[in-house]
């Protein structure tokens, strides 16, 4: 049985700072189906983390400001809930894992107590029961239960990230938001953690948003992919559509920037220039001045969504008139 766990409509977030206004997220729609994983892909400053924090209503205000948007999680309209109800939802219905496992744990508390604390906030359990559950959670993420009386500094980076995952999953959330969960880890440890996350997601039948800049990670864990650039989702579709039928020049640029491990002679074709200044986004397409396909129109008009399938859309001026247009980069 499937259903929508998360529905975000027309979300826009900005940060008002002394230097001006940063338009971090500019009207995006996301929906995540039960049991599926959405990959949110983009570079530094694309607005990925801001999007995730909005779902948890954790945007620091000030300077952050949610300009517009409807967020519906498991049938509840989050934007209208009072803060006290929100606290129940965070860690209960939806949890988040952050990039840096080193700072996510309290160094002076035993890991078992930290997991138990999360459990007690959301479930009426006695200390003994909560600790018992904490032990089970630790074992579920592959750490011997006996280690629950140890302190975070006694764990390695990969182990800490497992503890963080145990805390996040302790109340069986419907949705897990993982913000670059493996970026700080070594390759072999990353493989372990990704494997674990995939396994647990199946087991607990939850939906997941995987925020990452690594298309390799996306290929491994995601069902759907949204590519973000300068606060917009420029292309979204199923994993297969994005990888094998790439439509947006930026998506293509990302693929061509990654060294291909199976073909060492392949030349890297980086995207030129830098991401546009978030204080001062261009009136037209934000990607315009880095795009090899840019036309006059791109500088002045915002592109509209063009659908290729119910799931797959792209925001680009190349397509409304000519849906057959093919990117030339040898990808897709």
């Amino acid at each position: 049985m499937k259903g929508t766990v998360l529905k975000v409509e027309n979300l826009a977030v900005r940060y008002v700072t002394e230097d001006g206004i940063v338009q971090a997220v500019n009207g995006i729609d996301i929906s995540v189906e039960k049991g599926s994983t959405l990959g949110l892909v983009g570079e530094t400053g694309a607005g990925k983390t801001t999007t995730a924090l909005s779902v948890l209503r954790l945007i620091p205000d000030p300077p952050g400001e949610v300009v517009s948007g409807k967020i519906e999680l498991d049938g509840k309209a989050l934007m209208e809930l009072p803060e006290s109800k929100m606290e129940k939802i965070r860690g209960g219905l939806v949890s988040m894992i952050f990039q840096d496992p080193m700072t996510a744990l309290n160094p002076v508390l035993k890991v078992g107590d930290q997991i138990a604390e999360a459990i007690k906030i959301h479930q009426q359990l006695s200390q003994d029961k909560a600790l018992q559950k904490a032990r089970e959670m630790l074992e579920m993420v592959g750490i011997p239960g006996a280690r629950m009386n140890e302190y975070p500094h006694q764990f390695s980076g990969g182990m800490k990230q497992r503890v963080v995952i145990a805390i996040a999953l302790s109340c069986s959330p419907k949705l897990l938001i993982a913000d670059e969960p493996t970026t700080a880890l070594d390759v072999t440890i990353q493989a372990q953690v990704l494997e674990l996350m995939k396994e647990l997601k199946e087991k607990m039948d939850m939906a997941m948003i995987m925020i990452t800049h690594d298309l390799g990670v996306v290929a491994e864990v995601c069902d759907n992919v949204a590519i973000m650039y300068a606060g917009r989702i420029v292309e979204q579709g199923t994993l297969e559509e994005i990888f094998n039928n790439t439509k947006h020049p930026y998506t293509e640029g990302l693929f061509l920037s990654i060294p291909n491990i199976d073909d060492r002679k392949a030349e890297l074709k980086p995207i030129r220039g830098l991401m546009s200044d978030p204080f001062n986004l261009p009136p037209g397409c934000s990607f315009c001045d880095r795009c090899d396909y840019a036309m006059d129109k791109c500088a002045t008009e915002k592109p509209e969504k063009v659908h290729f399938s119910p799931d797959h859309f792209v925001e680009c001026h190349l397509y409304p008139d000519n849906k057959e247009f093919q990117l030339k980069g040898g990808k897709g």
Partner: peptide, 12 residues
């Protein structure tokens, strides 16, 4: 071998 196989590859 393990290192090589552990790299997430951006391909389907």
């Amino acid at each position: 071998k393990a290192l090589l196989s552990a790299i997430p590859r951006p391909t389907l």
